[in-house]
Every structure is written in C-alpha cells, then in structure tokens.
Simulated assay, not measured.
Amino acid sequence: MANNIPLAPEAGAVWLLKSVRGIVGTIELVGIDQPSFKCRFVPSPAWADFSDLFEKQARVVDQGIAEEAGAALKAVQELELILVPVESAGQTIRPSIIQIRGDRASFRF
C-alpha cells in the first residue's frame, strides 16, 4: 500500500465476509467493472440470518424506490461488514457498498 491508498485486489482473491453478527459467507473476486468488484458468493451456514436484508436491498434497488433503497443500504451498512482475506498476504477491506444476489456479489470500497 503506497501513500495509504489500498491496492486493487486481483481476480481470484478470496475473503470471508464477516459482520458484527457472524460470518456471512465467502467472496471470490472474479472481475472488476470499476467502480465495482464482481464476485462469486458462497453463503455460510448463518446466511439465513442475513439473507432478508440483502434480498430487500436488491428488490428496492431494482424497483428504483430511492427512499427504501437508502434505508436498505443503511441496514446492510449497520452489519459493519468486513472482507477478511483467506490468504494472509491479502488485505482486509471494509466495503462502502455491497450487494449479494444469489451466488453473485459486488462491492465498492
């Protein structure tokens, strides 16, 4: 990391997606479409505790309901999510926005 600016992760990077409430799942970077990082998502056994928030977020974003989209984004942000690298050489990332849709995820940081 030069000048405290995080380096962009590379395809194949794998993280545990963690919240203050537990492990949400595993995220593997498959591509970058700036400003979003496109990923494969594998849910943890605790996914049922989180899935409703992400499903609602996707639904209101797709429907273009601005007020509800803002509330859904805030609810996801309140999970205080972090991406913790599976490989010790990777970087921990705190996404500013993250969406999970089935086995796909995308995030920005």
Rank of each mutant, 00 (worst) to 15 (best):
L79C: 04
Q77S: 13
F37G: 03
T92M: 13
P45I: 10
I27C: 08
Q63R: 14
L79Q: 03
V24A: 00
V42M: 12
S19A: 11
R101Q: 13
R94K: 13
W15Y: 07
A89F: 06
V76H: 05
D62R: 12
I93Y: 03
I5Y: 02
S44P: 02
G90M: 05
E55F: 01
R104L: 01
G64D: 05
I65G: 03
N3H: 15
Q57T: 02
D103G: 04
P85C: 12
V76C: 08
G70E: 12
V20R: 14
Q99F: 13
S88R: 12
G12W: 03
E68L: 10
E28H: 05
E78V: 08
A8K: 13
V60D: 00
E67Y: 08
C39P: 04
E87Y: 10
Q57A: 05
I98T: 04
F41D: 00
Q57C: 02
A58G: 04
I82H: 08
R108G: 10
I97E: 15
W47S: 03
A46W: 06
D49Q: 15
R101Y: 05
E28P: 05
V60M: 02
D52V: 03
S96Q: 14
S88P: 10
F37W: 14
D49F: 06
S19R: 02
A13E: 13
L81P: 06
F107W: 08
F107Q: 02
G22F: 01
W15K: 05
S44R: 01
I97Y: 15
L83W: 03
I32W: 12
A71F: 07
P95S: 06
G12E: 00
Q57L: 10
V30R: 08
F37M: 10
Q91L: 12
V86G: 03
F41P: 00
S44W: 01
W15G: 06
A71M: 04
A46M: 14
A11F: 06
G25S: 02
D33Y: 05
L17G: 07
A72R: 01
S19M: 04
E80C: 07
G64L: 04
G22Q: 08
